[in-house]
């Protein structure tokens, strides 16, 4: 019994100290003056983190939009409301699916890669040698990656949403024969820029920060062995996905909870 209590206490302390370390880590890496050198490093990471995630986001966005239209149509047509298809596809994408699914894909594609990359740098003493040369790896390695994640996820989310709406159009209008005018005009009437688009963007900004933060911290804080790297990569994907889903509920409750 005592052993269980002790183990619980230790786990709590470990978790608290990890949260503290992660917080300090975030502040130390983000708070710095912009420089030309930093901008170049950031651009390179934008390519790696952002541009290289575009393909997976395009494909997933297209399929999610098509499935939404297909599923939505079969339900809506029962009420004779198939004109509302555009509204349904757009609202579910903009408010919910684009930020959340893009963030989940981002955690799997870019997050795990960031953790493994930084972890391998740690295992091969590259981070230590950088420190010994007098360069802070938090500034040079971590900060550009954090900013790249923070900026690129919202952009990826927009791409996801646009492609998804187009996918819905392909299935709904071209295939199932929903009237094109009502698909677009219903969407235009019902989607509010501030309530829907902006709120969706706020979500993706939060997700971008949290997912990248988890990924770089897990890489920086791991035990530098092959097992340590594999565990940390798994943890990145699991923690980041759970954080995205949990935060999505909290944010949705804050944004839309009082609309009803």
């Amino acid at each position: 019994m005592m052993r269980h209590i002790a183990a619980l206490g230790r786990a709590t302390l470990d978790t608290l100290s990890a949260i503290g370390r992660a917080g300090l880590f975030l502040v130390q890496s983000v708070v710095c003056l912009p420089s030309r050198e930093g901008f170049h490093l950031w651009l390179r990471q934008m390519h790696f983190v952002g541009v290289m995630s575009v393909a997976i986001v395009l494909v997933s966005g297209l399929f999610i939009g098509m499935v939404l239209a297909l599923q939505g149509f079969t339900i809506l047509v029962g009420f004779g409301a198939d004109e509302a298809l555009g509204q349904m596809v757009a609202l579910s994408l903009v408010r919910e699916l684009a930020p959340v699914v893009a963030a989940l894909l981002f955690a799997g594609r870019a997050g795990s890669a960031l953790t493994a990359e930084i972890g391998l740098m740690k295992a091969t003493e590259q981070l230590t040698s950088m420190e010994m040369i007098g360069v802070d790896p938090l500034r040079r390695i971590v900060a550009p990656r954090l900013w790249a994640g923070f900026v690129s996820l919202p952009v990826l989310t927009v791409i996801f949403g646009v492609v998804g709406i187009w996918g819905g159009y392909l299935v709904g209008v071209d295939w199932l024969g929903v009237y094109e005018g009502s698909y677009w005009s219903n969407m235009q009437d019902s989607v509010d820029f501030v309530d829907d688009v902006l709120n969706g963007m706020v979500k993706s900004l939060v997700f971008g920060l949290v997912v990248t933060w988890i990924a770089v911290f897990q890489g920086y804080d791991l035990i530098p062995t092959s097992e340590g790297i594999s565990r940390a990569t798994t943890r990145t994907v699991v923690y980041a996905s759970l954080a995205v889903l949990g935060l999505d509920f909290v944010l949705t409750a804050l944004m839309f909870g009082d609309l009803g």
């Binding site: 391998l120 740098m121 091969t124 003493e125 590259q126 230590t128 040698s129 950088m130």
Partner: peptide, 9 residues
């Protein structure tokens, strides 16, 4: 000078 060299890959 690190044991592994620790060159930036």
């Amino acid at each position: 000078l690190f044991q592994s060299g620790a060159l930036f890959s």
